[in-house]
């Protein structure tokens, strides 16, 4: 398994874990906080968003250090270079992810036109971006395993 494949697998797991926690917490907050009160509603989840981003950055740093240490111990160095196959896999996976993002963006647009508050629209957009990233990473792993 290449450095990029390991990195993608770890980040996919991290994103699923962290954003599952975020959306669970967000729904709990939405039950009690005044989330339909414009921009002020967004402020109610700002700390949660901050913790989520910090957790993801932390997971990324620690995971890549661990991957690098394992690679050095097994093969003597860290081969994080990208070649034409990596780039093709990135491109094809990005294309799949952008389909998910487009569908999500259209869903958010529909939500805004049908009277959903900024709070729900913002979270739906975040959900679409997360889904897009998950789709992209899943296809990357698929192409690395099954061929491209």
């Amino acid at each position: 398994m290449s450095f990029h494949e390991k990195s993608t697998a770890v980040m996919l797991g991290g994103i699923i874990l962290v954003y599952s926690w975020y959306f669970t917490q967000m729904l709990a907050i939405a039950e009690t906080a005044p989330v339909d009160e414009g921009v002020a509603a967004i402020a109610t989840i700002a700390p949660l968003l901050g913790i989520t981003i910090a957790a993801l950055v932390g997971i990324a740093i620690v995971a890549h250090i661990v991957i690098a240490i394992v690679d050095v111990s097994r093969q003597g160095d860290v081969d994080d270079a990208k070649d034409e196959r990596d780039e093709l896999i990135d491109l094809k996976s990005e294309q799949r992810g952008s389909i998910a993002l487009t569908i999500g963006a259209l869903a958010v647009l529909t939500m805004m036109l049908t009277g959903f508050s900024m709070f729900w629209a913002a979270n739906a957009l975040l959900g679409a971006m997360v889904l897009s990233t998950i789709v992209k990473a899943s296809f990357q792993l698929y192409y690395y395993r099954r061929g491209v």
């Binding site: 398994m1 290449s2 081969d79 270079a81 070649d83 196959r85 990596d86 690395y144 061929g147």
Partner: peptide, 12 residues
């Protein structure tokens, strides 16, 4: 100028 994983993928 490619990675070892790419050579493996080509061979397979």
């Amino acid at each position: 100028g490619v990675t070892r994983q790419t050579v493996i993928a080509i061979e397979q």
